[in-house]
Design a protein around this nucleic acid. Structure first.
Lengths: 163, 163
DNA sequence: CTCCGTGCAAAAGGTTTGCACTGGT
DNA sequence: ACCAGTGCAAACCTTTTGCACGGAG
């Protein structure tokens, strides 16, 4: 069995463990959605995941995909990725700069650091991409969110409002 | 006059120059929206910009804010920032990793690079943030977009479909 | 004077919510 | 058997589009 397969099984096992730990049921929908995530090498949208599973789970609804993926993020087995997308945000600063992002409330602020900016561009030739620039996203807790229980996970987490 | 004020004037001048160069009118709406962008230290949403200007420009519509900010990005005087937001995307990979993002079609793929990951966390104490992790976004052209005229700006640019 | 930009309203996505029912544990 | 998860439909919110008018060059 290949390394990749083993990795896949291990991740599924981690999901099952987390579900048991949190006393939440491991439904066929959750398993299928998680496997669909693992089987893609890109960062699918809700709709892409839905397309991937709707044949295996006839009658499944998009709503379930929304809720399930949100659950996975809470469980720590999946991530939401930063992406230029709907609910656009704009920045008048076009100079090279970096960002601080709060993992709890999603606040985003600019961060200038000459040391970071001196970072040499890595060799990405094997990917076929032609890299022009880069920016670093520093992830952590903003001053406001540090005040609240920083270990809060899922529960007592404020409804994300995209501050 | 302070350094900041000078910077502000300089940026407004750059916008005026770009508008003249591209033969597009410099309307009161465009000026107000650009000033609103410059006056904020964060990354406002469309709606936040709208709230900022609606008193100064009575009767202005959200539609104008949408179109104007898009114009600014084309002119190169503003940027759209990557942000965890609506049109969610998910990643089954929770390990530390980086991203390649195509500035033309917004394609996003994972990129692993041990050298990048050894980067020491910068000192962000002055910001009040408590940094836990970071990830690097490498910006450039994906293999597909490299094929098309890479210098295309605005014109002949495909409608963004969030591939 | 000529266009392009703007405002309005409607349409087009994407996401969230309430409720009754089903299915894991 | 119990309670959380699911499916459906409607509500909600953000973004896009078509059209007629008005203002910048």
């Amino acid at each position: 069995m290949s390394k990749v397969k083993l990795d896949r099984q291990e991740k599924i096992g981690r999901l099952e463990a987390k579900c048991r730990e949190r006393r939440i049921p491991m439904t066929v929908q959750r398993r299928a959605i998680f496997e669909a995530l693992l089987d893609r090498q890109d960062h699918p949208t809700i709709d892409q995941v839905y397309e991937d599973i709707k044949d295996r789970i006839p009658g499944v609804s998009r709503t379930t995909v929304y809720r399930t993926l949100e659950t996975f993020v809470d469980l720590g087995v999946s991530r939401k990725t930063s992406h230029v997308a709907a609910m656009a945000r704009f920045d008048g600063n076009v100079e090279h700069h970096h960002h601080l992002v709060c993992v709890r409330c999603d606040k985003l602020v600019d961060f200038d650091d000459p040391a970071l900016s001196r970072l040499p561009l890595p060799d990405a030739r094997r990917t076929g991409f032609e890299i022009k620039d880069f920016s670093v996203y520093l992830e952590g807790l903003c001053p406001d969110c540090k005040k609240f229980a920083p270990k809060a996970r899922g529960a007592n987490r404020p409804r994300k409002k995209l501050i």
